[in-house]
Amino acid sequence: MKHYEVEILDAKTREKLCFLDKVEPHATIAEIKNLFTKTHPQWYPARQSLRLDPKGKSLKDEDVLQKLPVGTTATLYFRDLGAQISWVTVFLTEYAGPLFIYLLFYFRVPFIYGHKYDFTSSRHTVVHLACICHSFHYIKRLLETLFVHRFSHGTMPLRNIFKNCTYYWGFAAWMAYYINHPLYTPPTYGAQQVKLALAIFVICQLGNFSIHMALRDLRPAGSKTRKIPYPTKNPFTWLFLLVSCPNYTYEVGSWIGFAIMTQCLPVALFSLVGFTQMTIWAKGKHRSYLKEFRDYPPLRMPIIPFLL
């Protein structure tokens, strides 16, 4: 059985960083990364991007050496992705923050609204209902991160945790300040508006959870398998008939419901920014589905049925 020789060059300087002799033909890129780490321990596998061309796409960890368009002496180019952190850690951090930050404003801890309001309670029912909904949303997200989601990528750049936390924590503080303010004004149409908004919120939260469970069942634990998601017997998953990412559709719907319930401008802005970002993600995933699966359902749109 022939063996391969693998040289790894710096993608920027073309400097030879490592030479691997007698590499098995069936070795994966993940195994080559581990061998590279032995000579350069500062670059652990998650930091490494190996590619066939200095400006090309990163090879997948599961790619097999003998199936790549290389000879028995293969040249790979290395790029440092920077310090990495696990997706689970990032999600837990960015979701735990809003949960606790919101509660600080809800309980009106000292130095927020003035001494005479310390630890007082709002007289408006919608304020307490909003706290329950907000807390439920982020507790749900935390539990899904721990027990439901299966991540195709193990890590992301460390800098992302600061960007994500600034976004989630900042908006949580902004909306919580106004919703729990002693001078907060309840919704214009009173109980009817709150009940309608609560119904929207609850339905969308159930829908979002149902989609996450359906997506989880598509991917076996520990794998990166991708399949076309289809509706199940659960009615909340029937939205798969019309959109590629109904989890985002339901998520946006939840925040629209919360915005109607609280009639709070920061919540509306958070919903708008979230919708914009999720639309970008949904379009990317939709394109990926179309590219990977020739039999992908043609009627589906990325996030909004028939429109977007």
Score class of each variant (00 low, 15 high):
142 L>R: 01
100 F>G: 13
257 G>A: 14
189 Y>S: 08
184 Y>S: 05
47 R>L: 09
280 I>S: 04
191 A>H: 09
59 L>K: 12
79 R>P: 09
60 K>E: 09
62 E>Q: 05
186 P>E: 15
92 L>S: 15
258 F>T: 14
130 A>H: 15
18 C>V: 01
285 K>G: 06
290 L>G: 03
3 H>V: 11
216 R>C: 14
291 K>S: 11
261 M>E: 04
94 E>A: 02
191 A>N: 11
195 K>Y: 14
237 T>Q: 15
223 S>W: 13
21 D>E: 12
159 R>H: 11
51 R>L: 08
15 E>I: 01
101 I>Q: 00
254 S>N: 01
304 I>A: 07
56 G>A: 07
238 W>R: 08
280 I>T: 11
55 K>P: 12
30 A>T: 10
260 I>H: 13
159 R>W: 15
9 L>I: 02
76 L>I: 00
219 R>G: 06
303 I>K: 02
32 I>V: 09
29 I>H: 03
28 T>W: 06
257 G>N: 09
35 L>C: 02
199 A>V: 12
77 Y>N: 10
169 W>P: 05
301 M>K: 11
94 E>F: 00
189 Y>L: 02
296 Y>D: 03
85 I>R: 00
146 L>R: 14
136 F>W: 04
201 F>Y: 03
192 Q>L: 12
37 T>P: 05
178 Y>H: 06
228 I>G: 14
236 F>L: 07
100 F>R: 01
82 G>M: 15
285 K>D: 13
7 E>S: 02
223 S>C: 01
73 T>L: 13
141 R>P: 02
172 A>E: 02
29 I>K: 02
6 V>M: 13
37 T>N: 05
79 R>I: 13
240 F>P: 14
173 A>C: 11
61 D>S: 03
289 Y>F: 10
24 E>Q: 09
291 K>Q: 09
271 S>T: 09
245 C>R: 06
127 V>F: 07
220 P>N: 15
65 L>P: 09
43 W>R: 10
94 E>K: 03
195 K>E: 10
121 S>A: 13
82 G>C: 14
295 D>A: 11
61 D>N: 13
257 G>S: 09
193 Q>I: 00
172 A>S: 09
68 L>Q: 01
209 F>D: 01
302 P>S: 11
170 G>M: 04
210 S>P: 03
57 K>Q: 13
242 L>E: 15
132 I>L: 01
101 I>Y: 05
90 V>F: 05
95 Y>M: 03
176 A>F: 06
306 F>W: 14
166 T>H: 15
35 L>R: 08
144 E>G: 02
66 Q>F: 11
200 I>R: 01
210 S>T: 04
303 I>L: 09
4 Y>N: 08
225 T>M: 09
20 L>I: 11
195 K>I: 14
292 E>K: 11
221 A>V: 11
248 Y>N: 10
111 F>C: 02
140 K>N: 02
164 N>R: 10
48 Q>R: 12
119 F>S: 13
301 M>S: 03
205 Q>N: 12
286 H>S: 00
289 Y>N: 11
32 I>A: 04
68 L>N: 01
185 T>N: 04
81 L>G: 01
247 N>H: 10
18 C>P: 12
244 S>T: 11
148 V>G: 12
117 Y>C: 11
214 A>N: 15
293 F>S: 11
13 T>S: 09
6 V>T: 02
100 F>S: 09
178 Y>C: 12
236 F>D: 09
273 V>N: 02
20 L>W: 12
245 C>L: 03
4 Y>E: 02
141 R>S: 01
4 Y>C: 11
191 A>M: 14
24 E>K: 09
93 T>E: 02
24 E>D: 05
253 G>D: 01
261 M>R: 01
137 H>C: 15
282 A>D: 03
2 K>G: 09
9 L>E: 12
264 C>V: 00
22 K>T: 08
263 Q>P: 06
290 L>R: 12
276 T>P: 08
174 W>C: 08
246 P>L: 03
131 C>G: 13
75 T>G: 05
231 P>H: 05
99 L>T: 04
265 L>H: 09
22 K>E: 09
47 R>N: 00
63 D>Q: 00
174 W>M: 04
60 K>L: 08
235 P>Q: 15
235 P>F: 00
114 G>W: 08
216 R>Q: 09
121 S>L: 05
156 M>K: 01
95 Y>A: 05
93 T>I: 07
92 L>F: 01
105 F>M: 00
49 S>N: 03
76 L>T: 15
216 R>L: 09
164 N>C: 03
37 T>I: 10
204 C>S: 12
296 Y>E: 02
293 F>L: 10
226 R>G: 14
305 P>F: 06
44 Y>K: 08
283 K>M: 13
30 A>F: 13
87 W>F: 05
145 T>E: 04
8 I>Q: 01
275 F>S: 07
22 K>A: 12
120 T>P: 12
187 P>V: 14
104 L>A: 05
56 G>H: 15
114 G>M: 15
10 D>A: 05
7 E>K: 13
247 N>E: 15
